[in-house]
């Protein structure tokens, strides 16, 4: 008995967490199968019928699992959607990195440039960028370009800001020493600025991934012919709630995996500059 208690003490976090998840799943399953309605009928009589919720409204964990099996394994129809969404993410995020990092570094280094760029970045940052979506569709149609562009708009902000912050927090003494020894701008950049900025850029990337997921979902919900967001949207409008949940779960796992990946790399290089995380947020 004591052994069991000690085991519980050691793994309290895991046990309580899993227990709550299990309870939640049972509650959900019961909701769609009418367990709770049947259970409470003697107590609340006819109003128990209100607890009988139509399956299309809530689906159930087992139905979602079955749908996931069907979509991933039997028909495999989710893979093309997944591949397209992944490509859009890579292209949008990649172009944001290609533009955002140089722009952020240059803006951080040259004061006058920062004056010129800042108003635009502040405005873009304050706007929920997805509001541009109808406009982008007008310009580029409903093809991949639209999604890549909206992901670009969403992700360039955190990447730009992190690159900007990286340059601004470089130790001024280091710059002064290097400059007084006659280091060229290029050398200064390679040997002082670039190494110090890596942790910042990773912190920015972590934020950008979260925003890229927003871009994928919204871009595809709003106007698209393929992709995870479209799958969710189509399933939603045809009341296939289980398929909607499969899509949502897929996005949850993808988001967690990508964020975890960047966090891992981050903790690895964290030693280089301990407060990069705070400065970007």
């Amino acid at each position: 008995m004591n052994g069991a208690r000690a085991f519980y003490r050691r793994n309290e976090r895991l046990i309580l967490g899993l227990a709550m998840i299990a309870l939640f799943l049972i509650f959900w399953e019961g909701l769609s199968r009418g367990w709770w309605a049947d259970l409470l009928r003697p107590l609340i009589r006819s109003s128990a019928d209100k607890l009988k919720i139509k399956h299309i409204f809530v689906s159930s964990p087992t139905a979602v699992a079955v749908a996931a099996w069907r979509l991933y394994v039997v028909t495999g129809e989710i893979w093309p959607h997944l591949a397209i969404s992944g490509l859009e993410l890579v292209a949008g995020l990649g172009s944001a990195i290609l533009v955002g990092i140089p722009l952020g570094l240059a803006t951080g280094r040259y004061r006058l440039l920062s004056y010129a760029v800042e108003p635009f970045m502040a405005a873009l940052n304050a706007t929920p960028q997805v509001a541009f979506l109808p406009l982008i569709i007008l310009w580029m149609g409903t093809g991949y370009g639209t999604r890549v562009f909206i992901i670009f708009l969403l992700t360039i902000i955190p990447i730009f800001i992190s690159a900007f912050a990286a340059v601004r927090t470089v130790d001024a003494r280091l710059l002064k020493v290097a400059a007084s020894f006659g280091a060229s701008e290029g050398f200064l950049f390679r040997s002082v600025v670039a190494p110090g900025s890596v942790p910042f850029l990773l912190a920015g990337l972590r934020l950008a991934i979260g925003r890229a997921m927003i871009g994928i979902v919204v871009g595809e919900l709003y106007g698209s012919a393929i992709g995870l967001g479209l799958m969710i949207n189509r399933a939603g409008s045809t009341f296939q709630t289980d398929t909607v949940f499969v899509g949502v779960m897929t996005i949850i796992f993808a988001g967690m995996a990508l964020t975890e990946l960047v966090s891992r790399i981050e903790t690895r290089v964290e030693i280089w500059r301990p407060n990069a995380r705070d400065a970007v947020q």
């Binding site: 309580l16 967490g17 979902v217 919204v218 939603g236 899509g247 949850i252 967690m256």
Partner: peptide, 25 residues
Amino acid sequence: YMVQPFIDVMNAVPRITFLPILVIW
């Protein structure tokens, strides 16, 4: 310990993903 898993999951996904379900509800 009890609430954290749910918050972590919800934090990992843009909540607007739930929009189609919320519209059904």
